[in-house]
């Protein structure tokens, strides 16, 4: 899953800070159908990782697709992946192709 996306890239974000530190916009039934990163906060786990970029569109989180998910559902999936104690990282499948 996701591997058919020609320009997609798997990025592992270690939970190195208390917050993930990204802002997202978009979701099903909006002009931006998949969540797009609009801000990366300095000092957050995403910033510390150094690979997530503003403009990345998030296709999957820990293998769960965000396709068809409305904004709040997508945000909840990301928040719960970061909160879950079973893993010390979150895997994002992202693309720069919008």
């Amino acid at each position: 899953p996701g591997l058919l996306e020609p320009t997609s890239c798997l990025i592992r974000v270690a939970k190195s800070a208390p917050t993930l530190g990204i802002a997202i916009e978009g979701g099903a039934n909006t002009r931006q159908p998949l969540p797009r990163i609009v801000t990366i906060q300095r000092g957050g786990s995403a910033h510390n990782c150094g690979k997530l970029k503003v403009g990345h569109v998030i296709l999957e989180v820990n293998g769960t697709t965000l396709r068809g998910k409305e904004h709040r559902a997508a945000a909840r999936i990301i928040a719960e992946a970061f909160k879950a104690k079973e893993k010390d990282h979150v895997d994002f499948l992202v693309t720069e192709f919008n």
């Binding site: 909006t30 928040a79 970061f82």
Partner: peptide, 15 residues
């Protein structure tokens, strides 16, 4: 393109 224009903008959530 016309369809895009009819879709609403999204809210932004900080995570």
């Amino acid at each position: 393109r016309e369809k895009r224009l009819t879709l609403p903008p999204s809210e932004i959530t900080l995570l």
